[in-house]
């Protein structure tokens, strides 16, 4: 511990017990006061390696070796893009190769080996796998939220259980005190033999203890938050007053004043779609389909053909 010192102002942990070392992405440590001094403007360069740094990227050094910190940083950054899961690969072999690649990249970046090419490799990967990266990011986000919810729920249950235990303990204590008082009262005022009274009381208590403890509140949930009784014991839904049921009526098609256009089924089945531009993925997501403009054009072409002046 004594060799933990700020490389700039040479303060050590021994001389200043509140010394906090901070690291940034380059992996060179600085003490908190040096950071305050050097990065007054929010950004500056590392005194060791002249890499431009931002002040808000500084964080407390957790490991003694700043290189470890640097590696963590880099790993975090790399994993943000290399976020494929085992399911994304066909064989275990491919997945292992992929993991190996990540390790190589992290190692290279940490030890300043061939940085330019490694960065190029990452860029290339990003470009090639943009869609998968985005998808996995969203998935991870969702999983994290679910996990947090579960943790939250468990914590609440734990608190409730502790409160219950406390209450029971207190009650037991009170009960004991009451019994003692009753015994003393009995001894003071009763006529009978003190030994007998003691015996009967001891028996009473023994009997009581044999009585089953009040049942613990039943656990109704798995730790994952799924209820045991899910689906079986649903609360009865309130029955609402119902009016007459809604009945769908097809809208009245006004006179088109022309021959009937083909139906949507006809457009799909009779080959009209070969002659219109097919929709692409993005348009499909928005609910667009090439049948719609095709139908519209045909309707427009046929409507009004019978128009007589």
């Amino acid at each position: 511990m004594d060799d933990q010192a700020c490389p700039r102002c040479k303060t050590t942990k021994y001389r200043n017990p509140s010394l906090k070392l901070m690291v940034n992405v380059c992996g060179h440590a600085l003490c908190e006061s040096c950071v305050d001094l050097l990065f007054l403007k929010g950004s500056g360069s590392c005194p060791d390696c002249n890499v431009p740094l931002r002040r808000n990227n500084f964080r407390v050094q957790m490991f003694e070796d700043p290189m470890v910190e640097k590696e963590i940083d880099i790993r975090k950054r790399v994993l943000r893009d290399y976020n494929k899961k085992e399911e994304d690969f066909a064989t275990l072999r491919e997945y292992n190769d992929y993991l190996e690649e990540i390790e190589t990249i992290v190692f290279n970046l940490t030890n300043n080996i061939d940085i330019v090419n490694t960065n190029k490799r990452i860029e290339h990967y990003k470009r090639d796998n943009r869609e998968i990266i985005m998808k996995n990011k969203a998935k991870i986000g969702r999983e994290e939220i679910e996990l947090e919810e579960i943790l939250d729920m468990e914590q609440k249950l734990e608190e409730a259980r502790k409160a219950d235990l406390l209450r029971m303990e207190q009650e037991a204590k009170k009960q004991k005190i009451r019994e003692k008082e009753a015994l003393i009262d009995e001894l003071m005022f009763a006529e009978g033999d003190a030994k007998d009274i003691l015996n009967t009381f001891a028996q009473n208590i023994a009997n009581k203890q044999e009585e089953p403890l009040p049942a613990m509140p039943k656990v109704t949930q798995f730790s994952t938050g799924v209820k045991f009784s899910h689906g079986t014991a649903q609360a009865t839904l309130p029955i609402l007053e119902e009016g007459p049921l809604y009945r769908y009526e097809a809208p009245i098609v006004p006179d088109r004043c022309g021959p009937d256009p083909p139906s949507i089924d006809d457009i799909v089945n009779k080959g009209y779609l070969q002659h219109v531009r097919a929709e692409n993925e993005t348009e499909k997501a928005g609910g667009y389909s090439s049948t719609l403009p095709c139908l519209r054009a045909l309707q427009d072409a046929l409507a009004g053909l019978y128009h007589a002046s």
Binding site: K270, G271, Y272, Q274, H275, V276, C294, R296, A297, L298, Q299, D300, A301, L302, G304
Partner: peptide, 17 residues
Amino acid sequence: IHNPFRPVEGFLIDIKT
């Protein structure tokens, strides 16, 4: 305004089909 341009497309699609 109903212009004749879309009907033209409709006729061309219909003729092709």
